[in-house]
């Protein structure tokens, strides 16, 4: 699903964001990405969501080599990545239904098909009864769930989440993480960037840890607070 091979990223101005990062997230896997601010999490997410290209190394997303990908093909690759943002990125002048329907409208599905899938997605996140409301009238947690519904409505093989619980209280955060687990159980690969070590601790999933642009740890959660898994030499 996601493969980083010796990836380095240097922004214009010389700022080094990533240094020789290697990791792979396989189909059906759920993994966390964590690290301090400035560690390089955002850069990894930007690479996966095709907003940036690596300076050195290779990034494969759903089998596509980013270095080889033509600009005009990027939208088609993005359709296979459900993206969830901390800031929700919702269209406030449209209804919840319209926001969730957007990926399907872009793909040109029929109205009937769109209604069925949007209803199912909203049902899953518990917002079926709010589909005609504006996102402005919803709480932060509800807006986040609208974002999740939009990310999964076209059934992408990969779900990418950037601080999905950043603005939510612990109870809501846990609910959303359980929702991700549900989706993962249905075969969706999930990659979550988060600071929320408490929540990570409660879940038994693989966790990648970044520090100053380097991957310093790649461990199963149950090891993180006990025994640290040693990475192979070429993975550090």
């Amino acid at each position: 699903m996601i493969k980083f091979a010796n990836v380095s990223k240097t922004y214009s101005g010389g700022q080094i964001a990533l240094q020789k990062v290697n990791f792979e997230v396989k189909a059906g896997e759920m993994a966390f990405l964590t690290g301090h601010s400035g560690a390089g999490k955002s850069t990894i997410l930007k690479l996966i969501s095709l907003m940036e290209r690596p300076s050195v190394g290779e990034v494969f997303i759903n089998g596509h080599d980013l270095n080889q990908l033509r600009r005009k093909d990027i939208p088609y690759v993005r359709r296979d990545i459900g993206m969830i943002f901390q800031s929700h990125q919702l269209l406030m002048d449209r209804t919840v239904f319209d926001n969730v329907a957007l990926p399907l409208v872009i793909e040109g599905y029929s109205r009937k098909h769109i209604v069925r899938r949007v209803s199912a997605a909203l049902e899953l996140v518990g917002l079926r009864n709010k589909q005609e409301l504006s996102p402005k009238t919803l709480s932060g947690g509800e807006q986040q769930r609208v974002g999740i519904a939009r990310a999964i409505v076209n059934n992408p093989p990969l779900l990418l989440a950037d601080e999905p619980t950043g603005n939510l209280d612990p109870k809501l955060s846990l609910e959303i993480f359980h929702l991700f687990e549900q989706l993962n159980n249905r075969g969706m690969s999930i990659f979550i960037a988060t600071h929320d070590l408490g929540l990570i601790a409660r879940m038994k999933h693989r966790t990648l840890t970044l520090n100053q642009g380097r991957m310093i740890e790649d461990a199963l959660q149950e090891d993180m607070f006990g025994v640290t898994t040693k990475l192979p030499g070429d993975m550090r």
């Binding site: 699903m1 189909a27 059906g28 759903n62 089998g63 596509h64 088609y76 690759v77 359709r79 296979d80 793909e107 040109g108 069925r116 899938r117 199912a120 997605a121 899953l124 999964i152 409505v153 059934n155 992408p156 093989p157 249905r186 075969g187 969706m188």
Partner: peptide, 18 residues
């Protein structure tokens, strides 16, 4: 749930439309 995940693509390919 079943409707939403009907026809899931797990292979790493861009879905093609006819």
């Amino acid at each position: 749930m079943s409707l939403l995940f009907h026809g899931r693509e797990t292979t790493p390919k861009v879905r093609k439309q006819s």
